[in-house]
């Protein structure tokens, strides 16, 4: 590993991987939430047209790709906002138009060889330029700060768009912001991950994170951790293996997903064996249900017929015997209940 760090192009590739591994899952979770997992893929297609224009005109391909992807992002959101059924077809036209234009235009470029095209589509550790890194770092900073600042709002809109509209949140503006963030992520990823595989780094770490997360915020943290390990690990092993970095990164991410799924399944199985489910009853325990409430670790037990019931998912867990006052069949009076909730 220390050898890897002394090679110039590896340093740049690893820094680019660090940036994209962090921001791609941060943006991706909202795409997963909105069931738009493949939109990043489409933006990658359009970004290829931008790359091609850059190569033909002698501009930096990173900047032209950014312009193309951002324009596509805004157009896509406006289309989604207007129509419903035709919006889907319009997306297909934009995406395939983008990649087709990319392939055709790139063939006219001075260095428009198939090998060169492959680097953009599937990623390469050799292509990250020093100037690119500044652009990537700036974009990554903007993406992280924006997603952090807008996270509750992006969450609200992705969670329930109709509700967000009814209570006056700026739904269209937030959706356009998310689309532009996606476009910027695609551009950061174009060097090491490649335009055809970037979507995987936005989605797969989130898919793995959702298997073990118990809240939205823990989902984000796990996804960023998985994204970082995939991107940096993938770049690191692609050098000794002499493989395209994008494909390697995505395979690492998929491996993490499979291992996580297996571990999560085992934990669930063990958890089921280890906890006792109480008898089912129609009565729902709550703070005012009349049963004595006893704090127990991170939750509250309710004393029900001499047993302690703890709410767990759709049922109650049996948390042992309790013969205290108020444990009789009937509901206890309010004073006893209050005392109960304060007991430690």
């Amino acid at each position: 590993m220390s050898d890897l760090l002394t090679i110039d192009f590896m340093q740049r590739a690893l820094i680019a991987a660090l940036l994209v591994g962090t921001v791609a899952p941060m943006v991706g979770i909202f795409l997963v939430q909105r069931r738009l997992s493949l939109i990043g893929d489409g933006m990658g297609h359009v970004a290829l047209a931008g790359v091609a224009i850059g190569l033909v005109t002698g501009q930096g391909p990173v900047l032209t790709a950014l312009v193309a992807a951002v324009i596509a992002a805004v157009v896509i959101e406006l289309l989604r906002d207007r129509g419903r059924t035709n919006g889907d077809v319009a997306l297909a036209v934009i995406f395939y138009g983008g990649i087709a234009a990319g392939v055709v235009i790139i063939s006219k470029a001075p260095d428009g060889t198939p090998a060169n095209l492959t680097k953009y589509l599937f990623g390469s550790i050799l292509t990250t330029q020093r100037d690119d890194l500044y652009v990537f770092a700036a974009l990554a900073a903007v993406i992280s700060v924006t997603t952090w600042a807008l996270r509750p709002r992006l969450f609200a809109v992705a969670n329930d768009e109709e509700y967000a509209r009814a209570v006056g949140l700026p739904v269209l503006a937030l959706n356009i912001v998310l689309a532009v963030l996606t476009a910027a992520t695609v551009v950061i990823a174009m060097r090491v991950v490649g335009l055809l595989l970037i979507s995987a780094l936005m989605i797969v770490p989130n898919a793995a994170a959702q298997l073990i997360a118990r809240s939205f915020s823990s989902g984000v943290r796990w996804a960023v951790a998985f994204g970082l390990v995939s991107a940096v690990g993938g770049v690191a092993v692609s050098y000794p293996l002499n493989t395209p970095s994008g494909g390697t990164i995505v395979l690492v991410a998929v491996a993490i997903f499979i291992v996580t799924a297996a571990v999560a399944a085992i934990i669930t199985r063990v958890g089921q064996l280890r906890h006792a489910v109480a008898e089912s009853h129609d009565h729902e325990h709550g703070l005012e249900c009349g049963h004595l409430a006893v704090p127990h670790g991170d939750h509250v037990d309710y004393v029900h017929d001499g047993h302690r019931h703890a709410p767990h998912e759709g049922h109650y867990d049996e948390h042992g015997h309790d013969e205290r006052a108020g444990s009789s069949n009937g509901p206890v009076d309010g004073a006893a209940e209050t005392t109960g909730t304060r007991r430690s």
Binding site: I29, V32, Q33, R34, R35, P152, R153, F155, A156, N159, D160, E162, Y163, A166, V167, G168, L169, N206, Q210, A213, R214, S215, F216, S217, S218, G219
Partner: peptide
Amino acid sequence: MGYVPQRHTLSATVRATAEEIVASGRLP
């Protein structure tokens, strides 16, 4: 305007706690 839509289930695409969902109602 407080709106309670008809949802048979809350969005299950990503995990979220009851508190996180309710907090989104504070945003307006």
